[in-house]
Design a protein around this nucleic acid. Structure first.
Length: 290
DNA sequence: ATCCTATCCTGGCTGC
DNA sequence: TGCAGCCAGGATAGGA
């Protein structure tokens, strides 16, 4: 599913096709795709605006817009599970799941295709209308070990749901959380407040190295959904150590990878390499109370 | 504060 | 073979 590496790939590949282009119009085929307003108002806000920058924040693709040299808001898109963005000629066969089509001034169109209709698009004047609640970008310098450790200690949550929480850290999804926890040797249900600095550092390193490696491979494609804007699958699924590997041997110890449900999400891990944290806190409390 | 459940959707899979 | 039912997933709302 599109998580940070996939969205980063989409933004990078769309960039040369959109920067400098002007939106001429278009059509919305599934109205609920547009979250910021009605479809007509959305299309009107884009018409005549030119694209100055294509980038990513969390799992959002962001297109900065300009009119007569002045900032004119942002086109924002979240792919959710099955969304795809393609810039193609008008005759492009977009299949039966086309939700939005935006016409560009070079005779090409930006197609938003989304099988499950969960993807969303917005036109916003200011970024903070959408991004105000988001946590730090895990690949930026501001995401450092000490702040991460402090943030983990400030909460008392299971690691997996906490890492999926976009207000805690932005851009991680189910795949990269499972892979990061495995790489760090941490159990998905471990309590964030009990992580010592060494564990926090392992997790921090794991998150950053996995995201970087996945971006280098243009993301992960393990089903028919995620494709780059060039129509190609990513390559990082070949490097999965736990995700989608239920019953297969752990690459580190050989034990079978197990799949459970944590926070309503399918969760893959190795019982040997990611042991449940020792309940030292519980034992200490028990000792004090006697 | 944290956790849990339902909701949004469809295609693909399982089981009868 | 046909078909009902379940499942996947990101995000969020509302209740426990």
């Amino acid at each position: 599913m599109p998580e940070l590496p996939e969205v980063e790939t989409v933004a990078r590949l769309l960039r040369p096709k959109l920067v400098g282009r002007v939106f001429r119009g278009g059509e919305v085929l599934w109205a609920r795709t547009i979250e910021s307003s009605g479809p007509d108002e959305f299309l009107a806000a884009l018409r005549g605006a030119s694209c100055t920058r294509v980038w990513r924040r969390a799992k959002f693709v962001v297109v900065d817009l300009e009119r007569r040299g002045k900032q004119a808001g942002h086109l924002v898109c979240h792919l959710r599970m099955t969304g795809r963005l393609h810039v193609e000629a008008p005759g492009y066969d977009s299949g039966s799941h086309l939700r939005v089509r935006l016409e560009l001034d070079d005779r090409k169109h930006l197609f938003f295709i989304d099988v499950r209709k969960f993807g969303r698009m917005w036109f916003v004047r200011e970024q903070r209308e959408l991004f105000g609640e988001l946590g730090p970008e895990p690949l930026e310098d501001a995401f450092d070990v000490d702040r991460f450790h402090a943030a983990l200690r400030a909460r008392k949550r299971q690691l997996k749901p906490l890492l999926l929480d976009q207000s805690f850290v932005a851009g991680l999804g189910n795949i990269y959380v499972d892979e990061s926890l495995f790489r760090a040797g941490l159990h998905p249900l471990a309590n964030s407040a009990r992580l010592d600095r060494a564990a926090a550092k392992r997790l921090h390193t794991a998150i950053r190295s996995i995201l970087s490696a996945a971006i280098a491979r243009e993301g992960s494609s393990f089903d028919t959904f995620y494709r780059t804007p060039e129509g190609k699958p990513g390559g990082f699924q070949d490097e999965f150590q736990v995700y989608d590997r239920e019953g297969e041997p752990c690459t580190r110890c050989g034990a079978a990878i197990v799949k459970t449900v944590v926070g309503q999400r399918g969760t893959h891990f190795c019982r040997t390499c990611q042991p449940r944290a020792l309940k030292r806190g519980a034992n200490a409390r028990a000792a004090r109370s006697t």
